[in-house]
Design a protein around this nucleic acid. Sequence first.
DNA 1: TGGCCAATCGGAGGTAGCCTCCGTATATTA
DNA 2: TAATATACGGAGGCTACCTCCGATTGGCCA
Lengths: 202, 202
Amino acid sequence: MDTRRPMRADARRNYDHLLVQAGEAFQAHGVDASLEDIARAAGVGIGTLYRHFPNRDALLLALTEERFDRSRASAEALLDAADPVAALTSWLRRFIANSATYRGLPESVTSVLTNPDSSLYATCHAMQDAGGRLLARAQQAGAVRPDVSARDVFLMAAAIGWANSQVPDDPERIERLLSLLIDGLSRPYAGPGLPERAHIVS
Amino acid sequence: MDTRRPMRADARRNYDHLLVQAGEAFQAHGVDASLEDIARAAGVGIGTLYRHFPNRDALLLALTEERFDRSRASAEALLDAADPVAALTSWLRRFIANSATYRGLPESVTSVLTNPDSSLYATCHAMQDAGGRLLARAQQAGAVRPDVSARDVFLMAAAIGWANSQVPDDPERIERLLSLLIDGLSRPYAGPGLPERAHIVS
DNA sequence: TGGCCAATCGGAGGTAGCCTCCGTATATTA
DNA sequence: TAATATACGGAGGCTACCTCCGATTGGCCA
């Protein structure tokens, strides 16, 4: 299948070092970390970094693609779960954790999803589609309001990841915000009063 | 009260031009717009920009302070409104619109709120405190779940502003996402089943 | 083993944006 | 009109991005 030669030993070594150092730099400084620092930390010239990874996104791709693909697989597995809302919740929790891996990653994820030229586009869309099926299932079961789109749900999930990275660490915060989102998604009590409240105009 | 002399006429003129051009640049390119471009557009040297506004935040402050202060006043006025949830909703809508004025502004707002040295700190905190009283009132009325903090609510509101700026314009989106948030905040129907759903672990 | 060359390396250098500093220009006041 | 406080402007030092190409080297073959 793969007709390309294997990498030369030095190239392979540098590639691996770069990935390790990029991971640490993104962890420490967010996805805007200096690429020259990464090259220096990996003990290679800046030209070598750019040859292996022609832009910042390529580096991000190499570091995150597998994670996003596992998230897609996880969504597909959860389609068989007993409780559709629990399945959706559990998958969203994972999606949020993924997109909060590095500071600035939620921005990249949402921008990738609207940019077909991005190398992560296919992976992210497959993940989103799989999540969309989880949402549709919960809606068909009547447990989630039917008027909400997958796009809006993912946006909100990414937004929770963003929010969490904006303020000092609080290990419980993601769970609290996710719970707010899930309650908002859940089909509200259809009695008098409540469901209309959100639509009152000022 | 103000013991300072009035600005020299040329200084005043330049100051005004800079503000106008900065507003347009932030509108067009987000809060990371090039300051050198702004100076050029205003017909002044970069040194003049920095004398009037020692850093980017000072420019942002001058452009947004009044808006945030009006938001505080609006929160205080809404304390007398008949329906506490409608009042909170209406104020959050305004808060979101304010923090979505420029791309990147939600980041600045959340960062200002955790940085007492920022010149916008006092204004933003006053606004947040006023909003917090609106939330407390809705909670005391039993219409909003009591276990949610003002901090989390503002974070989510800022996150909605962020989300909206990440993807192509959709005039209805803010309203849909806000409605999700409000439904999540609203005290859920206390019958069997629903309220627990959000807390199921994977 | 030795030599060749394609693959790989490295960093100089051009671009852009940030911000400071200080010699020059000018609005204001007397 | 002259003196002076005030304000101007942009050169220049810094950091980061990214490209290009001469120097280097790993791997293969005789």
